[in-house]
């Protein structure tokens, strides 16, 4: 774990709130950063699979979110999803389908109380965990 990543706590809470709200399905969504690279917005997106063990973002909502990010002058900073019943570490499926190597992948684990939020990069099948700090 060598990279340090900060996320405003309010955004972390939004991610957790969405993932709790759609449990037992996996929740998912995007995190956008402003022009300086600071995360500024969480955009929840429907899980088109409505599954407790898989997610695929609803295509239309993903398209609309990407358009919003572009129009706001933001960039795609992170991709989050939840593991409702297991540890928040990348599964073989997560690694195989990780198509955005420049993004942080945030995974929420809801099997513990309090929930866990961890941050990874996944590049060509290589996973690295970043030290995630929630900041005021």
């Amino acid at each position: 774990m060598n990279e340090e990543v900060t996320l405003p706590a309010v955004l972390g809470e939004e991610i957790l709130a969405h993932c709790r709200a759609v449990r037992p399905e996996e929740g998912c969504g995007l995190v956008a950063a402003d022009a300086s690279g600071r995360p500024v917005a969480v955009i929840p997106i429907a899980n088109a699979l409505h599954s407790p063990v898989r997610y695929q973002m609803d295509t239309r909502e993903q398209f609309d979110a990407m358009k919003r990010i572009r129009r706001e002058g933001w960039s795609l900073w992170g991709i989050f999803h939840s593991h409702p019943h297991s540890e928040p570490s990348p599964s073989p499926t997560d690694i195989r389908l990780a198509y955005y190597p420049e993004c942080y992948y945030l995974i929420v684990g809801l099997s513990t109380d309090p929930p866990k939020l961890r941050c990874f990069t996944m590049v060509d099948g290589r996973v690295s965990e970043a030290a995630l700090t929630l900041v005021p």
Binding site: V53, Y55, M66, H85, L97, Y100
Partner: peptide, 12 residues
Amino acid sequence: VSIIPAIAGGAE
């Protein structure tokens, strides 16, 4: 024309 790779994954 927008090219949009799907974002997907999951615990299993």
